[in-house]
């Protein structure tokens, strides 16, 4: 069946607008100008996942982060209760529209994924990888600095959250003791 030309044009325009909105809503790209966002839009990779399809698996080398444009994903880890026992899947969290994950891979050197992420339903994700970040730094250093600053803020917040969590766990241990 022939697809009308006008519908196609509007669909691609709508897709660009959705992408732009998804990028604008993300902490890493929030401070970019309209021109810089357009550059990022040309560089990032839009990927579609079928229900149950893994985005990445625990133990693989990660090269970048993903932003959820549409759909949702489950984050799970494989834990060994004992050294000689089979690993067990542990559900960590469910992420949906606007959430992002895997950003630590942007700054790690051959760092491995610490969890498995699987699409729950048909999902559209924006993949932003180390080579993409390097390309932006190379072509537009101003935009690169803004993105790196945003990334630092995100990593700083994650570190603060983890520290607070460890502190509360230690406190619990002390109370129980």
């Amino acid at each position: 069946m022939m697809v009308p030309l006008w519908e196609n044009i509007f669909r691609s325009d709508r897709r660009a607008k959705t992408l732009e909105a998804a990028l604008r809503g993300n902490l890493l790209f929030r401070d970019l100008t309209a021109r810089e966002i357009r550059l990022v839009q040309q560089i990032v990779n839009v990927r579609t996942y079928a229900p149950g399809e893994p985005v990445f698996q625990q133990g693989e080398i990660g090269v970048g982060m993903y932003i959820i444009v549409q759909g949702s994903v489950d984050v799970t880890t494989e834990e060994h209760a004992r050294a000689n026992q089979a690993p067990q899947n542990q559900f960590i969290t469910r992420l949906s529209n606007g959430d992002f994950f895997g950003e630590i891979a942007l700054v790690e050197e051959a760092g491995r994924r610490t969890a498995t992420v699987t699409a729950r339903e048909e999902s559209v994700l924006i993949g932003f990888f180390k080579p993409d970040l390097m390309e932006i730094v190379n072509r537009n250093p101003g935009a690169g600095v803004k993105i790196l600053l945003g990334l630092s803020k995100v990593l700083g917040t994650r570190l603060a959250e983890t520290t607070a969590m460890i502190r509360s766990l230690k406190l619990n241990d002390r109370i129980e003791a």
Binding site: N45, R47, P54, V55, G62, V63, P131, E135
Partner: peptide, 25 residues
């Protein structure tokens, strides 16, 4: 060239995407 490479990368199956992208770079 870059957009052509991106279009070619777009057809890489999800499972191999990160590997192929990093390798190409």
């Amino acid at each position: 060239g870059r957009s052509l490479v991106r279009q070619l990368l777009a057809i890489v199956p999800n499972h191999y995407f990160e590997l192929v992208m990093n390798l190409q770079h």
